[in-house]
Design a protein around this nucleic acid. Structure first.
Lengths: 242, 242
DNA sequence: CGAATATATTGTAAAATTTACAATAATTAA
DNA sequence: TTAATTATTGTAAATTTTACAATATATTCG
């Protein structure tokens, strides 16, 4: 019985982070260049085995900070992957998290055994070790469905942003396009954006108004049971193909 | 380094299943009476440590079948819980799953080290060991948000059911009430129910029509991008309390 | 057989939301 | 001043949601 019990306690658990960022050229994912075995010398999700004296949630934050220098970012658990042979060193379960960061506010720098850290466009991801491509796919879908229900997109934008930038973000993630007028009407009707009164500068055309996400207003809305789901109007023929 | 690596491989992983059932008296959860340490002699979620030669998904199914006799049921991963001291025997991460079953179609029988298995009304759950109450809470919320987006409720009903039964199910899970006319209009407009032409028998009043869930129609709808979300009309004042 | 009882079933008008669609405004550069 | 570029805005039609109650169909009982 004790023997039996011991046999269960031979697994390791790791955390793999899917870190999304966004800039004008679209949605990005942060990868590190592995400087440690296994799969040394290839690009992978920033992830590592968990020390057994640390809570799971803290571990996710710690792993991210150790490898990329990022801290205090929005993180959420995605899914746990546990195929028998997913890791060459033994039985390793991995808990995947996603993180959203404002690329402008953070400087990413590889550390610990990560030799490099770099942003890859979501549409151009190399072959990754372990089951990391599967994890990434899962994360993309989760982001996609999540952003339709909660305003997490603001975690990816700078503090002040234009409605055009916001629309670009939604279009990138949802891989679709919205009518400009309807998008603005809808997002403004949700009533959690504040017009800062400021405008874009140093652009060579009509400057756009700068908005910010109003957390307080948003929380009030949620607290009073108001729906903050987007349910966006799509372009015609976009959603009904028979 | 090898020493270091070894220190990671001393965790265990368990699976805990939140099995939901439904009958006329409401939503139920399946608990087992533990006949093994730790927490022997108390009610708990059916869960167990995972053998390290079995995939995570298979383990979830196996654990459920071993303890309760249930197999081939609708299961989905919920979340992974990993506080350091959640298990008295060592570091145990647990992956929670939920399962939906048609209580009429299955006979639940405790086996392995489970001494009993019984259905508990969702509103009357005892104190559970480990973090099982937290897991259950998590599962309830997941079921709640999930059923608003996908017709998973049919997994809880018998093959043929009345619209009243369906409405009761939705009302139980969502803890709200719907207007009869609006509920029927909406659910029928979704176009994945088939009127079987049969009627209820042995009731002492007007018998209701029996419907069934039409998987093929549903898949066609989903495949053509049609929205199957419910977005139910609620009773007035139900969702805006300020 | 008729009445009482119990649940099932259905329609419609008003309000709100979504959808489709293009002209005008504000800035810089030439 | 004009050209170029992006930002901003309105409205009518269609669809969906909402609020609301009368009628239908079965069984049981007297």
């Amino acid at each position: 019985m004790d023997q039996k019990l011991e046999s269960y306690f031979k697994a390791a658990v790791s955390v793999d982070n899917v870190v999304f960022g966004f800039d004008n050229s679209g949605l990005k994912v942060l990868l590190i260049y592995r400087g440690a075995d296994p799969y040394r010398n290839c690009w992978a999700l920033p992830g590592d085995l968990i020390a057994l004296d640390t809570d799971l949630t803290s571990s996710a934050e710690k792993v991210l900070q150790d490898l990329t220098g990022l801290e205090k970012v929005y993180m959420e658990q995605i899914h746990t992957f546990g195929k028998v042979n997913r890791h060459p060193y033994g039985r390793v379960f991995t808990v995947a998290y996603f993180a959203l960061i404002k690329t402008e506010d953070y400087h990413v720098h590889a550390s610990s055994w990560a030799e490099e850290a770099a942003w890859f466009p979501i549409s151009d991801i190399p072959d990754l070790p372990f089951d990391h491509n599967e994890i990434l796919e899962y994360a993309k879908n989760m982001l996609k469905s999540k952003i339709r229900r909660q305003p997490i997109g603001f975690e990816l934008l700078p503090k002040y942003f234009t409605l055009t930038e916001l629309q670009n973000l939604y279009e990138s993630i949802l891989e679709t396009q919205f009518d400009v007028r309807n998008f603005r009407k809808k997002i403004l009707s949700l009533d959690y954006l504040t017009d800062t009164g400021m405008k874009q500068s140093s652009v060579t055309h009509r400057p756009a108004k700068l908005y910010k996400f109003n957390t307080k207003k948003y929380n009030n809305l949620v607290h009073s049971g108001f729906s903050v789901e987007l349910n966006f109007p799509l372009f015609p023929t976009e959603n009904l193909t028979v």
